[in-house]
Design a protein around this nucleic acid. Structure first.
Lengths: 361, 361
DNA sequence: GGTGCGTTCCAAAACGTTTTGGATCCTACC
DNA sequence: GGTAGGATCCAAAACGTTTTGGAACGCACC
């Protein structure tokens, strides 16, 4: 027999479809003995409810969707695997499955979004990599569709549920560590795109600098397009071969930090003796490289589990909960101290004094 | 209005549900003018067919499933992101979505498999990381359910569709390169688990050695549990601090190769001058590490696209195609020549002669 | 005028499930 | 003996779609 249905069970048991259905669901409506009989036969023939039938009548698909952004240059998100594993873990614990909606390069992400929402293929959505202001968020809020985001938007942080990494705090901590180690000449190497994670990390650094209120502190900034490795390498090369080379570099991501290490090696700049580098992400490569990169771990997997929980609360509870008091969670990244940072080098000019750093503008 | 249905459209257009449905599907039995009218209104109200209704009547869910193995120690598959991106790419091009079934640690993977197959949530399945003999494959063959696997099983390669990397060939090539560079003392560092990719790679190496038929060639082997990094490091340390240390190490995976590089550095063994190392996988870390690792690129993304194509052919075409002449594809990995391999070092004993290597057993 | 055919439309059934609103029978109680 | 109420079961409707098997109409042809 192909797939057994409720009707097959009903016939075999000489019961009605209703009774079989309610027996399986455990309603007190059906006699205990009958319930046992039903369950036994169901188990024996390996009955599994057809999900299309189920979701047609319940209005629930049992799926949570994730929009998979297919980038124009085919770049693989290094966190995707970890993130998905976490989502899967969080979802399966509460009986849902994950569904990946891939956006073709040709059609816009918004079209895919609409298709998913309107077709009822998913009961809720997870959005990643939100932009500072994000059209997807607006659309979903407008539709009243349950969703959570990994990362915040800038403008209106309170209108929907999110989980985010506290990048501002991490960058402030990184700065404090380096400052305490005597560094005064900083550089920030970042990207050229209005991603909100960039905004928070950069702001965190700037606020930490401002809080010190030390005129000796200088900050150079370099921003290049996110997926243009060549431009990035060039910018870092320029930064490091500069007369006013910084003694400490904060990289927006490990990917950038690794390039900093590479270019430092290229220019025979000793890390960490002459240059301290701190990244963010804790990529696997960061542990293998020499010197091993000091960085922050985002706990991507935990973040994803948290997002799954948040979303399921939204779906299972009252969906309008989102509008009333959306849940937010800021995850505290862990500093992974490794070998790429250390005390500031003595400057070439042995001036001794503190505020007397003539190479600064 | 919530989600518009065919009935809403029909009422608005003063047509029957049938006509609207067939108009949208483009059947010739609705007048061209009507068809245009239908399409216009559908687009205007943003009609998207409800997928539960659709799949209930068509028997197709529109989903392809992937079983996500949740490992007991929570290890993240480093290829998952790339693999999924490829799958998504291959599927979206032909109008399907991907669905991830996570297996809880508690329930066995087989239970999840059965649930997916019987519930009709997926029209086909992708299996990864097949074991030398795999219960999942047996089950699906038995059920006649469409599926493809990434990797082959050992025993019966011809009963189902697969795409695999030609690991045997890669390891043979790696051996030939090292042999031509003068290496005679080899080691293979591998895992302790009956994964079929291990089998093929190891066999490829052994056959290449046999083909040379050179009694001067020796091969030491080390196998440790797959996810026990400590045991692995220890085994590699032992191997390299051994009196009869090899001059060339072939690592089953880059993850292993990186540990070899790490331990070589620990023991002050210069790579590649004193030790050549070749890996397999082309992990991102392998490019960043010093010396950069020579390895093979598996083209995971292309592999995944190929799997998607194969599976959709199976689903859309005749499913029994699988039994008659299942499609196989062997992907040729690319050698990525980097800095971790080179000519064999002169041995300490300057014996000059060829077959006169007294430290060998 | 009847026949046949092509065009355009539609009512109804079907997919498999859950839920609603009883129906039936039995027991207990007055 | 009649009735209330509990226990157990079920027929039918509903979810939204696709497909089957016509129906209705107009036109051309003999």
């Amino acid at each position: 027999m192909a797939r057994p249905t409720l009707r097959h069970l009903a016939e075999e048991l000489d019961l009605s479809i209703t009774t079989v259905s309610r027996g399986l669901a455990g309603y007190s409506d059906v006699a205990a003995a009958t319930r046992v009989r039903i369950r036994e036969t169901a188990a024996r023939v390996g009955y599994v409810p057809n999900s299309a039938g189920q979701s047609l009548v319940t209005g629930r698909s049992g799926f949570v969707g994730l929009l998979l952004p297919l980038r124009d240059p085919p770049v693989i998100d290094p966190f995707l695997g970890e993130f998905l594993t976490g989502l899967g873990e969080g979802l399966v614990a509460r009986g849902r499955d994950l569904f990946l909606a891939t956006a073709q390069a040709s059609q816009s992400e918004m079209e895919v979004l609409q298709r998913v929402v309107e077709s009822g293929r998913a009961d809720g959505l997870v959005l990643t990599r939100v932009a500072e202001s994000d059209a997807r968020v607006e659309y979903l809020l407008d539709k009243g569709f349950p969703f959570v985001t990994h990362g915040r938007t800038i403008d209106e942080n309170l209108r929907h549920c999110w989980v985010d990494t506290d990048g501002a705090d991490a960058f402030a901590r990184a700065f404090d560590i380096l400052y305490s180690d005597g560094h005064r000449d900083f550089a920030l190497v970042s990207i050229d795109e209005p991603q909100s994670f960039r905004r928070f990390r950069e702001d965190g650094l700037r606020r930490a600098i401002a809080a010190r209120n030390d005129p000796a502190v200088s900050l150079q900034q370099r921003r290049t397009p996110r997926f243009d490795q060549q431009a990035r390498t060039q910018a870092i090369y320029d930064l490091l071969s500069n007369d006013e080379r910084p003694t400490a570099v904060l990289a927006l991501t490990d990917e950038i930090a690794l390039t900093v290490l590479e270019q430092a090696a290229e220019l025979d700049i000793a890390v960490p003796d002459e240059l301290s580098v701190i990244g963010f992400d804790n990529l696997p490569a960061s542990a293998w490289v020499t010197p091993a990169l000091t960085t922050f771990d985002q706990h991507i997997r935990d973040t994803a589990v948290g997002l799954a929980d948040q979303l399921l609360d939204l779906i299972d509870g009252n969906a309008s909960n989102s509008a009333l008091s959306p849940s937010h969670r800021l995850i505290h990244p862990d500093l992974i101290q490794r070998a790429s940072h250390g005390p500031a080098p003595r400057r070439h000019k042995e001036s001794g004094g503190e505020g007397n750093r003539d190479f600064m503008s």
